[in-house]
Amino acid sequence: MINVDNKEGACGFISQIAPSIYPARLIRIDEDTGQPIRDENGLCVCVKPGETGEFVGKITADPTRAFDGYANEEATKKKIIRDVFRKGDCAFASGDLLTMDLFGYIYFKDRCGDTFRWKGENISTTELEAVISETVQLADCIVYGVEVPGCEGKAGMAAILDNDHTVDVNDLLRKLRQKVPIFSIPVFIRLVEQLELTSTHKLPKVTYRKQGFDPQLVKDPLYFFDSKHSIYIPLDQQLYNQIVEYKIRI
């Protein structure tokens, strides 16, 4: 993908005159599972202008479009989608969520799966969960990205189990600064008394991601990382309004 004519904010372009000949497309994926959404014929569905989809590249015999895979075979399988545009074909799933305008310009939106993008960096939720859990004495923890108006990508947020009310968020911050880069430190923290598992025994990351950091939706204690003073402060409705109205820069 290349922004050949320096369109502001775009990271590439797909011609809308004959998009099928281009080796890359945006396909719809299920928000909860991350799997491609398919039509009645079992093929992937391309997004329409204004929609968000995963960026995929066709894999063909052409050496410039080949995909040799990773050293880990299981990781390779996860990156290959089959029966994409016609039966028998395959494509490389980038893990990047992009959106396209009416003219075909492509804009970065987010990362899908177990990573999210913040400050130009890809952050692994599972790695950060492990660090936080170890730091707060093996308490369950969920890390996910939340949308913040005016910000590209998603800000990191951590929901930490604190049923005995012993988690000191600023002590956690001090220790995290010694273990992870500054861009990986969660912008928001939510202390919960209970983390209910889903029917498949997974933590409810999708539910928490949708609730975001709005105090009107979240009744648990919320904290905001004030990077200017390097401290977590309680997140109330007034502070929330200042964040979403761009009065406070993250």
Rank of each mutant, 00 (worst) to 15 (best):
M1T: 08
I2D: 10
K7F: 08
A10R: 05
C11W: 04
G12T: 11
I14C: 11
Q16Y: 06
A18R: 04
A24E: 03
A24V: 01
L26H: 15
I27T: 10
I29H: 02
G34C: 15
Q35T: 09
Q35N: 11
D39S: 08
G42H: 07
L43S: 13
C44E: 06
C44Q: 02
K48E: 15
G50D: 11
E51W: 09
G53D: 07
E54T: 12
G57M: 08
G57P: 00
K58N: 10
I59S: 04
T60V: 01
A61D: 15
P63N: 04
F67A: 03
F67C: 07
G69L: 07
G69M: 02
A71G: 12
N72M: 12
K77F: 05
K77V: 00
K78T: 00
K79T: 12
I80T: 14
R82F: 04
D83H: 12
F85A: 15
A91E: 09
F92T: 09
F92N: 12
A93P: 01
S94Y: 03
G95K: 00
M100Y: 06
M100S: 09
M100E: 15
L102R: 04
L102H: 05
L102F: 00
G104C: 05
F108Y: 12
R111P: 10
G113F: 09
G113V: 04
D114G: 06
W118E: 02
G120M: 10
I123C: 01
I123N: 09
S124N: 08
S124H: 03
T125F: 01
T125D: 01
E127T: 02
L128D: 01
E134G: 14
T135Y: 02
L138E: 12
D140Y: 00
C141E: 09
I142T: 15
I142F: 07
V143S: 06
V143K: 03
Y144T: 05
V148A: 03
P149I: 00
G153A: 02
A155P: 06
M157T: 15
D162S: 09
N163D: 14
N163H: 10
D164E: 13
T166H: 07
T166W: 03
D168V: 08
D168P: 10
V169W: 04
V169T: 11
D171A: 08
D171C: 02
D171N: 11
L172N: 05
L172T: 11
K175A: 02
K175Q: 13
K179E: 12
K179A: 03
P181D: 11
F183P: 02
F188Q: 06
I189H: 13
L191G: 13
L191E: 11
E193V: 03
T200D: 15
K202C: 01
P204H: 04
V206W: 12
T207H: 12
Y208V: 01
Y208I: 05
R209T: 12
K210N: 04
Q211G: 06
Q211H: 11
G212H: 06
P215Q: 07
P215S: 08
Q216N: 13
V218K: 05
K219T: 12
L222R: 00
Y223A: 01
F225H: 10
F225Q: 01
D226T: 08
K228L: 02
S230K: 02
I231S: 04
I231K: 06
Y232S: 04
I233L: 11
D236S: 09
Q238T: 14
L239E: 15
Y240L: 00
Y240F: 11
Q242T: 11
V244C: 10
E245G: 15
I250S: 00
